[in-house]
Amino acid sequence: MAASDTAAGWRLSGEPKLTIAAENVRLRYTVQRTSGGRWWRRGQATAVTGPVLRGVTLAAREGEMVGLVGLNGSGKSSLLRVLAGLQPATSGTVVASAQPQLLGVSAALVPELSGAENIWLGTLAMGMTPDDAYFAKERVEQLAGLGASINQPMKTYSSGMAARLRFAISVAADPEILMIDEALATGDASFHERSKEAMHGLIARAGTVFLVSHAAQTIEEMCTRALWLDAGTLIADGPAGEVANMYRYYAHSIAIGKNEAAKRALVSATEAHPPRLSTN
């Protein structure tokens, strides 16, 4: 079922429309780093700002489910926030065919209100009429699958439950561009399946989904395409399976301390799947 939906998503390539494009996005951040980055080694020990994104250029079209892989701190979440317009880039442009919906790992919507009331408020906030919201409510509750907790205040929810609810609300609006930042990592197996189906439904209806995860397996299972970010630079851009595999090898090399092998993996990944758009 899910697989055929993915295929349907790909078939849209009859005339795929561009949904989002970013050009030369740079971002500097005020950070307190404990371990050294490249700018640190250059001897700027007193500097507290550092580059997070070093000129990322990318484009995605409808029917694509794009995974973002990379180590912690490689700029995945920052890139999503910039793409969604929640964080102004230091320089660079992001244009899109719709306002992206970003699902981050953040707190409850209105903590004092119950899950059901948050669904009501959220669907209305997105612009639904009360009639639509009434019909959407059941679908949202089903997708979130929170059972009786739906009537409890959202402040009592665990982070996983809150993420499920917010995901379900966002999907109900059928957004053209949905961005998910690790938010679904906390879900259990049954929710995993339902969310996968929901996302494939979105891309089958000419949407684009961005998914951040540092678990390569998630990207491999869910996405059609993967972007690999390393230290704020786009390293590779290609079919999800291959890029995720290369990333897995890289992350493993780092983990066991084979830095040389890791470096070679980076280079070969760029050679095999270079970023599609030229950065100037």
Binding site: K17, L18, A21, E23, A84, V95, A96, L277, S278
Partner: peptide, 28 residues
């Protein structure tokens, strides 16, 4: 929003994806 992109990228994207007139700057 398409005009906000550089000319070279615009033509590259047009070649690959066709029409760009539906694009707007995010968060605008």
């Amino acid at each position: 929003g398409a005009d906000l992109l550089s000319a070279s990228l615009r033509s590259e994207l047009q070649e690959q994806y066709g029409d760009l007139s539906h694009l707007r700057r995010v968060g605008s």
